[in-house]
Design a protein around this nucleic acid. Structure first.
Lengths: 197, 197
DNA sequence: CGCTTATTCGGATCAGCGATCCACATAAAC
DNA sequence: GTTTATGTGGATCGCTGATCCGAATAAGCG
């Protein structure tokens, strides 16, 4: 890559980081290009899609989260490791308003630039979940995909200005649902008469 | 209102209903106008914003949901009433892909055309919740706003193609969190050492 | 019925978006 | 210093919702 191209790329990433922190991931790409004193076409050549830009921008964060999962796996109890990692994930998304929707779309879109990162994240969560389940600390009827979905839903809550104030509390509510049902009587109560067809 | 205006309004509502069912609430207003053989300006005069259009279109559904809440309040046990009403709410949103985001925004935006409907819905849920709490069937540390947020989050899950397959299962998980903590030991387990500041 | 008036309509236009094209500028290689 | 491969960004496209205003028309009245 040519030196000037590299410089533009790096500068664009820096500016994009600022813009996204300020305005969320839906910020206009034109705005980012303007703030970087660069043509829109240049931004779009370096990062052909919004997902590609985010992938470059967030890769470090993704890596940190997966590393943190590995670390917690050896340093904490299965229960604490799972819950505090989930908490970290949700807390992280608050720095990038709107990223949850893109991640939810990317997790099953193999063409998305964010796909690989999302899959890796889900796998990291699945490991912690399996460990907690093996220890009897987490309900056994959920898997990594369920966990990903729950974290996404909680992160989405935090993205909605009107619901965000409850996000922390509802995290605890959902966390209790993941943890507490392990072998409890609820597994039986849970079987309700009949779902509305 | 002049006869031709009324006709256009009704026709637009019918066409909008079809279009939104097919493509979700983010369908282009221009498309709706085109399909109704009407100018875009005409659509926007009858319904100045997307929210206004949805409000007119969904008012019936909103009324049905609140009526159903009242009905369940007298016909079912506090627990069943709450859970099956929540299930109805989530199921209803699946007919209008994307409506959840607009409702979350509208619940605290008094200017939104959807505001009143959302507030009414939250109140209906709050009544069922309070009743279940009084009967000791629902955890007491949540309120109507929390309930609204949880339903919104579950509905949002159903809107995401990649997460939708788990939505039903995760509804049960969340429902168990709402119900099962009533006086159980979990209330105590729940107090975790310390949330990350 | 014909005239007037208030209402409604929709084509045209605007600013915004992301995507794409291509003449031009320039770093790098020789 | 010249050549060449690479990078750039203004211009343009099709799309979005919002707005304006001359033309069309329904309703009211003599």
């Amino acid at each position: 890559m040519r030196a000037d191209a590299r410089k533009n790329r790096d500068h664009l990433l820096a500016v994009a980081g600022t813009a996204i922190t300020e305005q969320g991931v839906d910020v206009s790409l034109r705005d980012i290009a303007r703030r970087a004193d660069v043509g829109l076409a240049t931004l779009l050549r370096h990062f052909p899609t919004r997902e590609a830009l985010l992938d470059a921008l967030l890769r470090t964060s993704f890596d940190e989260l997966t590393a943190r999962a590995a670390e917690l796996e050896t340093s904490s109890s299965p229960e604490d490791a799972l819950v505090s990692w989930l908490r970290d994930c949700v807390a992280w998304t608050t720095e990038y308003r709107g990223v949850t929707v893109l991640m939810a779309a990317a997790i099953e879109d193999t063409e998305s630039a964010l796909h690989a990162s999302c899959v890796t994240l889900r796998a990291a969560g699945a490991r912690l979940l399996t460990r907690a389940q093996a220890a009897g600390m987490a309900r056994s009827d959920i898997d990594g995909t369920d966990l990903f979905a729950l974290v996404a839903a909680l992160a989405w809550l935090g993205d909605q200005p009107s619901l965000a104030p409850r996000a922390d509390h509802l995290f605890d509510v959902v966390a209790s649902a993941i943890l507490t049902s392990a072998g409890s009587s609820h597994a039986k109560r849970e079987r309700r008469p009949r779902a509305r067809s």
